[in-house]
């Protein structure tokens, strides 16, 4: 009942507790509290779950290490110089060049730091691209079904059969893609159909469920149903796919840089490997560190990705997340 209504009462009577005037016993939560709760559930709980799993801890630390190397690293570490330091210095001997030096005295650690941003950009663009396109195509095809499904799957089948490596080689013939962002997307083009297929088959079984039917009867819009009920349940597939498509893009991308198909202005670990492979005496163990460290970087990055993805699997488990939220009713309810 509105305040103005109450004022018009002139007989002095006060509207007591009529049923429709009750505001309920729940105290109204301030915006701050709501934000705190959301933060608790969305940030604190996931971190706690990851911290409770050895794979999560190792994976996240490896990833953080590489990301820091690629973002903060270039600001802190200077550009590699030539003929400034001792030639072929072995690793772990000097603080000036902890990873040793190469044929022309280039500091290997500086080379690695300054090539990391390009690698990260390549992975990010490719994996994000294939994640978005794959999820979008898969959900629409599975949810809408019918002719649209057929056309979208036809399109994704066509994309799947275009082999990424030969495509990059062909493109490199008349246009040398040196921007890592573009290389990533090209390598991603036959990466998304796999995700699209998985997502589609999941959505196909999900769309027959009662929740979805009820939502449709209630007249919720398709976008809302897809966003609220379908995409959420797909998150495990999407994160795992993100890790695996990143892995594939690293492998193929670095491989192409290594065999000299890509290159030009942007350098990646693959270019270092190529220089090292072509320049150093491969029978001399004192020169192998130049080749080994970039290889090690690939392994570190991919290991980080895979371990994190495995640990992330548990993140999408709603019950587990509720139990790990700092306080609130959910955690009590779970233990009962």
């Amino acid at each position: 009942m509105k305040a103005s209504d109450r004022e018009t009462r002139t007989d002095g009577g006060v509207t007591e507790d009529d049923l429709f005037n009750r505001t309920g016993t729940l105290s109204k939560r301030t915006r701050k509290e709501r934000w705190a709760d959301a933060f608790n559930l969305k940030v604190v709980a996931p971190l706690r779950i990851l911290a409770g799993d050895a794979r999560g801890v190792i994976g996240i630390s490896l990833l953080t290490f590489v990301v820091l190397l690629g973002t903060v690293g270039p600001l802190v570490v200077k550009q590699p110089t030539t003929l400034d330091a001792e030639l072929w210095a072995p690793p772990f001997q000097s603080l000036d060049y902890p990873l040793g030096t190469a044929a022309l005295g280039q500091q290997v650690h500086r080379q690695i730091v300054h090539t990391t941003p390009a690698v990260l950009l390549m992975i990010l663009s490719g994996a994000v691209f294939s994640m978005f396109v794959g999820t979008a195509v898969g959900t629409v095809a599975g949810y809408k079904s019918g002719r649209l499904d057929y056309l979208l799957m036809m399109f994704s089948d066509t994309m799947m059969t275009i082999p990424a490596l030969p495509l990059v080689v062909v493109l490199a013939a008349f246009y040398r893609p040196s921007d890592p962002l573009i290389v990533g997307v090209i390598l991603g083009i036959n990466n998304w159909p796999g995700l699209a297929r998985t997502v589609r088959s999941e959505v196909l079984s999900m769309r027959e469920e009662d929740v979805i039917e009820a939502a449709r009867v209630m007249g919720l819009s398709d976008t809302r149903i897809v966003r609220k009920y379908i995409i959420r349940n797909l998150m495990p597939y999407i994160t795992v796919n993100f890790a695996f498509s990143s892995r594939r893009i690293i492998f193929e991308g670095i491989g192409l840089y290594f065999i000299g198909v890509l290159g030009g202005a942007s350098k990646t670990w693959g270019v270092i490997m190529q220089e090292a492979y072509d320049t150093s005496d491969l029978t001399n163990i004192g020169q192998l560190h130049w080749l080994v460290f970039p290889m090690l970087m690939i392994v570190i990055l991919v290991l980080g990705l895979i371990l994190t993805a495995q640990a992330m699997d548990q993140l999408w488990n709603v019950r587990l997340r509720a139990r790990h939220a700092q306080d609130g009713d959910a955690s009590h309810g779970e233990h009962d």
């Binding site: 892995r247 690293i250 492998f251 670095i254 491989g255 290594f258 290889m295 690939i298 392994v299 991919v302 290991l303 895979i306």
Partner: peptide, 8 residues
Amino acid sequence: NRTVPFYI
């Protein structure tokens, strides 16, 4: 095996 590319 999944973390080491075949060419390495």
